[in-house]
Design a protein around this nucleic acid. Structure first.
Ligand SMILES: [Mn+2]
Ligand SMILES: [Mn+2]
Ligand SMILES: [Mn+2]
Ligand SMILES: [Mn+2]
Lengths: 241, 241
DNA sequence: TCCCTATTTTAGGCAAGACTAATTTGTTTC
DNA sequence: GAAACAAATTAGTCTTGCCTAAAATAGGGA
């Protein structure tokens, strides 16, 4: 019970930060169950029980046995700081260092725990105070504000819909390569067209790779077919019709 | 005894890497005593005994009880890799990110353990395959070659000696600031002059800060007085007279 | 209401890396 | 050669984070 408040200078462990980040990602109003957290972190459930107890003692989360974990304000603050590090790093590694989609995530996943606040600030300046990472995820501000995120999937749009790409799933690097070639990058405007407008050769190729394609025209380009699996990993802001 | 050889892919812990680096730094032919290592790492001697045993089991060092530790070839390779990371990072942070002398060392000390080989290669390219870090320390090549290091101190030169600055002690950031103002940076050519050539006002100022100054003229500049303490932290290559 | 099952927690272990206190060893000195 | 002292090692603990196996619990379905 005696929730130990320690000096803020003490660096939290990478493990601690990853737990808080994972809870932040999974919580949507209600508490995150042990098993969900275990899945996200690829760790045994029993280990999560132990760790979350310690996090609760430190005042970073609230824990309801058999229910799940919720971030406290302190915990949320840490999570957002780590996410800010992660996303600034990803953008930096992509833009300035030239890392591939493949390398981006892993490198940022490690470095996010080890850069100083001064480094964070330098990156922010150097990148001209960016608001989105290369996947289109919002970069939290230093004070913890987060921009809105798209919830609609490209795969769920209908003929004639116009939209702007918000963000892309970052699960699969190969898919990101593909999307880059298609011009389906965050910020791109697009329109869902009729399937007929697409050439047959392309149709065959796409159909082999990914079933049930959707026809899309990215602004300034030709109409093209995009596989449903692919289109499901593209999140868009639907334009008011 | 059964010295476990493990797959090279397994990342070594920061702690392990710091031990190897410290042994590399302290060994000069003969084994590094427990106490010396404990001092360098700011860790209790008993802890060092325990850790060095484990390092020996892993084949990274050789350990002679009551004598000390020596790096094996495998251990040396790791030490040089970490040092390469450290020095590339220091240069990068100074040149591209704009870190201060103060921030340089600490940041590099952490990040050296966490960057990927791909990142290392990118830094190397971006910096145009540098051979020296901001302090003038040689950057080991990927294959583990290390350039020669200066051993003579500016403080020990005599009137009329000419020399080129090799490297600077990296203990004290404030001192590095001072040296930068004096133009005493790695690569600078200099000449030790007669004390009389220096103005009296400067003499007084310098004498207050650091006793028993030495008179130095850096190429392209005016003669100036440099405190003995300061001059002791500047290592030079003496020019053949 | 009772039982089944998935989830969660408890119990017990382990490795890494640190600590302090006690003991041993090596070395120097008289 | 014994005593004294410094250095090193051993012994015993601690914390963090992970594991597996066993026990407990919550909640839905019969
Ligand atoms: Mn991480
Ligand atoms: Mn991202
Ligand atoms: Mn280090
Ligand atoms: Mn250096």
């Amino acid at each position: 019970m005696a929730q130990t408040i320690q000096e803020p200078s003490a660096r939290l462990s990478p493990s601690t930060e990853d737990y808080l980040k994972a809870i932040y990602k999974l919580e949507e109003g209600d508490p995150v169950p042990t098993k969900a957290l275990a899945g996200e972190l690829e760790i045994a459930a029993a280990s999560v029980t132990g760790m979350t107890k310690r996090l609760a003692e430190r005042g970073l989360i609230e824990r309801e046995p058999y229910k799940g974990a919720t971030l406290t304000d302190a915990g949320t603050k840490v999570a957002l700081e780590v996410i800010r590090h992660h996303r600034l790093l990803e953008l930096y590694l992509k833009e300035e260092i030239g890392h591939s989609w493949e390398e981006l995530h892993e490198e940022a996943e490690r470095l996010e725990h080890h850069i100083s606040e001064a480094f964070e600030d330098r990156l922010d300046e150097l990148l001209d105070h960016p608001t989105r990472d290369p996947h289109g995820h919002p970069i939290p501000t230093r004070s913890g504000e987060v921009e809105e995120t798209a919830t609609q999937r490209l795969a769920d749009l209908e003929d004639g819909d116009r939209a702007v790409v918000g963000h892309l799933s970052d699960k699969n690097p190969a898919l990101l390569e593909h999307l880059e070639e298609c011009g389906l990058m965050p910020g791109a405007s697009l329109e869902v067209t009729e399937a007929q407008e697409v050439t047959e050769a392309q149709e065959v190729a796409e159909a082999q790779a990914f079933e049930e394609p959707i026809a899309v025209r990215v602004e300034g380009g030709e109409p093209q077919l995009v596989g449903r699996v692919v289109a499901r990993s593209v999140f868009v802001f639907l334009a008011a019709s």
